[in-house]
């Protein structure tokens, strides 16, 4: 009898040890759909590679393309009692209630990649790209070309997303301020940043006889869609062409087009935020304080813009997604 008792006890202890090992820091991660773009794919992979059981996490991943599904997932995480929630929001607004509920439940929230329009006290830290900075860099590059006329075909991303707003605003402001900057036609690739939609918009503009010398597409895929329409219509583009092609995200294939001189500019948007957040969570768990945040609780990733005339193979290897 005693033997059995000892054995059972030993077994229970061993089991509890085992479960204790399996139990990591409970994290709920809300992202967008990886099939959206090369950027998102790299971003999702970066997170899944970082928040692993070996690294001490018990992470649940949800990828949802729309705001309502994301909010649903966040509510689920709060009920589940996770310790941390990481969010890349489909839309910048509508998060206050959920974030307040998370705060009340003692859950710490990290934003990554995209900002949310809310009081900075509602999240612990935001590791983001400054999308507006990306837009400003692109517009500054465009201005440095010193063209006489800026007739722009503007293809926007998912309307209302931080990436779209940040990349669009500097351009629209510039066009309002300057006489010789005009947006000839504006369209959107929709929620999935659809290259096909971009192609249709460009086709329509070409067939309607609108002449433009700049394509400002808010991601690489949509820039590619426009290029297809230009090729079909016999309009030259790139370094020696009639139309300047601008994209964002720095996919490897896009940078290769830059190197080949078919495109002119690609703005970087770093998808690698997981390591930074991982570091911050480890600091908090060890009882430390997070440092280096600005007044909006942000940590901004440093980003570049690449010019077709100066890009090298080394850049592609280093920065291509």
């Amino acid at each position: 009898m005693k033997k059995i008792l000892v054995l059972t006890l030993a077994l229970i202890m061993a089991l509890s040890c085992f479960t204790a090992l399996a139990e990591g820091i409970k994290v709920g991660i809300i992202n967008l759909d990886p099939s959206e773009s090369g950027y998102r794919q790299a971003n999702v992979k970066n997170l899944t590679d970082t928040f692993t059981a070996e690294n001490g996490y018990d992470a649940t991943f949800v990828t949802a393309p729309t705001a309502d599904k994301q909010l649903e997932a966040a509510n689920g995480f709060i009920t589940d009692g996770v310790q941390y929630i990481l969010v890349s929001a489909a839309e910048t607004t509508g998060w206050d209630e959920v974030l307040e509920a998370a705060n009340e439940a003692g859950i710490k929230v990290f934003l990554f990649d995209r900002m949310i329009d809310c009081d900075p006290s509602l999240y612990t830290a935001a590791v983001v790209s400054d999308m507006r900075q990306e837009g400003e860099t692109a517009v500054a590059w465009l201005e440095s070309l010193g063209l006489e006329e800026y007739n722009i075909l503007h293809i926007q991303g998912q309307l209302g997303s931080a990436a779209q707003v940040g990349r669009s605003d500097p351009l629209t402001e510039k066009c309002e301020a300057e006489e010789n900057w005009t947006i000839v036609r504006e369209g959107t690739g929709g929620d999935s940043w659809d290259p096909n939609e971009a192609r249709k918009i460009a086709e329509a503009a070409i067939n309607a006889g609108e002449s433009f010398n700049i394509v400002y597409a808010e991601n690489d895929g949509m820039a590619d869609g426009v290029v297809q329409a230009l090729d079909a219509a016999g309009i030259t583009h790139g370094v020696n062409g009639d139309v300047i092609i601008m994209g964002f995200d720095c996919n490897k294939w896009a940078l290769e087009k830059l190197l080949a001189g078919e495109w002119n500019y690609d703005g970087q948007c770093s998808p690698f935020q997981a390591e930074v957040i991982d570091g911050m969570i480890k600091t908090l768990e060890a009882g430390g304080e997070i440092e280096g945040l600005n007044e909006l609780n942000q940590i901004i990733s440093v980003e570049k813009g690449f010019d077709a005339t100066t890009i090298t193979q080394e850049d592609i290897d280093n920065y291509g997604l």
Partner: peptide, 12 residues
Amino acid sequence: RLGQLNHKTLLV
């Protein structure tokens, strides 16, 4: 047409 495959938007 696009020289790429996008599961979400192909023939949507």
